[in-house]
Design a protein around this nucleic acid. Sequence first.
DNA 1: CTACAGGCTGAAACGCGTCCCAGTGCAACA
DNA 2: TGTTGCACTGGGACGCGTTTCAGCCTGTAG
Lengths: 321, 321
Amino acid sequence: MANISDIAKQAGVSKSTVSRVLNGHKHVSKEKRRTILDVMERLEYSPNGNAINLSRGKTNTMGVLVPRVGHPFFHQLIEGIGQVCMERNHTLLVIQTEHDSAKEEASIQYLRDKRIDGLIIGAISQPQLLETMRTVGPVVACEDHQDIVPSLSFNHGKAIIMLLQHVEERGAQTVGLCLGNPDSGVGRVRLEAFDQYLKTSTLRHGIQWYADRCYSFEDGQALAGQLLTIDLPDAIIVGNDEVAAGLIHQFRKDGIRVPEDIAITGFDDVPIARALEITTIRQPVVMLGRLAAEQLLDDALNQSESASSLLEPSLMIRQTT
Amino acid sequence: MANISDIAKQAGVSKSTVSRVLNGHKHVSKEKRRTILDVMERLEYSPNGNAINLSRGKTNTMGVLVPRVGHPFFHQLIEGIGQVCMERNHTLLVIQTEHDSAKEEASIQYLRDKRIDGLIIGAISQPQLLETMRTVGPVVACEDHQDIVPSLSFNHGKAIIMLLQHVEERGAQTVGLCLGNPDSGVGRVRLEAFDQYLKTSTLRHGIQWYADRCYSFEDGQALAGQLLTIDLPDAIIVGNDEVAAGLIHQFRKDGIRVPEDIAITGFDDVPIARALEITTIRQPVVMLGRLAAEQLLDDALNQSESASSLLEPSLMIRQTT
DNA sequence: CTACAGGCTGAAACGCGTCCCAGTGCAACA
DNA sequence: TGTTGCACTGGGACGCGTTTCAGCCTGTAG
């Protein structure tokens, strides 16, 4: 395949001039430009991206670190990031850790490595890595790690409180909690808000009504099975709509009425929540992805330190509470 | 930041030797290896990925071309591909076209460009581009384009026939069809199978019962609104569970009974189909992603031409038919 | 008719590893 | 002791653009 020197030779000019044409610099006579363009076309020339990356010291690529692409939160996030990448002529490298901490560490390598210009953290189970990441390149987290790296996230603590207030107003006296990864930033914030709220309220919680590492519809169904063997709480706060849906689905199959016997809330307001009329927290995740990507690009461009912020959640009251 | 020459200089050896250590080649004395490793650590050396890519002429990165990451089919596909990438030490570049044909064309550039070693086509609306892509680098399609590029896909035609047979057996005499992108490979195969089946059957279809470019729950809801203004068919085949869910949800809100008044089928068997007990086609999409990625890697490695194949769908009969 | 400005162009260094080839040195074998 | 062979090492070309700097040329102002 032809390279820039071939083009230069054939066109009777130097590499510099070809490069100028390639990058739309001025100071190239129209005849030479014409000739060079012709030769390029004839030889089906295409510049080597890796050479450009090496030479320029950047790749116009951003990375995103997620545990799993299939999770509704993360694929929405990726969609938003992808939109911005497309608009701003960047590409998107997806690093799926599957909660493997070695992979999380390895992802730092891409940054150090110069294979990506910046990294968006969808979720991370080892926040201590953030410190290192930040020193290596531009990073934006979509969890709340404000003290360490620029973060853009939903106010998960507030969301939990809104849900608890809501179920309490509806008369619940006991409440359960079901989370995803309790070690993630989100998990910890949610747990803390939950504990905090209970201290100032008459709502009661018990360890038998706590579950975590629930990610899917099936996990929700399984949890329903477990809960059925004990006394149900009046309400349960579930960290993910799909899990909530599985729970509701299985409960109803087993003759438990929702919300009469147990109120259930979800998180994210994905289609399944609308289909089952699940009371949930709406979080414009695609937008979060967009904002994070934009912030990352602006940072990288301007070298400016960016502010962190918390996006406000909204409560969607439907039929399961 | 330190580069390989700095390391070589500090360690009192040549770049070659450092490179050997870097790549785990033998024929390096343990003392030198030791010294080099020490220097690397001291200088916090990290090899420049772009230099490696340029030098080796490959990037250990595969691209995946999808219209939208948020679509259930595509995010499952990406998840599977991502798993394989992780296992085999590759990275995954996501190209989200949003059905923009210019973007589809541009994606060829990444391949030609050497920024990716191979490309997986999730869906493409301009199949004529495949011809070019194939000449540029390894490609595997997850739609049926067997005649042009290696393809791995579900037998969508057969799936449509299974659904039509099923609703016919349940007594339907008229049937509607709702697709996503009618120009995609999948869309065309489905449409053709649908038309073909109707020719040999007493099932009737009418243009008023056809819709396309429906992708989301909301699109399904909107479609329900439209259908309500005309006579309903006995059954409708919907190309996507989320759309089917929206349709069912809206119909039920408006007092239309499913399946009594209208039978509805979906596609993909995602959680929402289980939640609403939608009769659908199960397609192990994550597995498809894995297979496609593995095939691509094996191709790229062995330069071998790979076979295409059609994966068998299975019909999940539930409550909406 | 100078002089200076500004447009145009090329040489060469640079970014950074990889890898082939040509040794060097020492040990084992004849 | 001479030969063969293998472990180890370095030199330098190569992959391919980008960019800086110097220099040439032409037009215009003085």
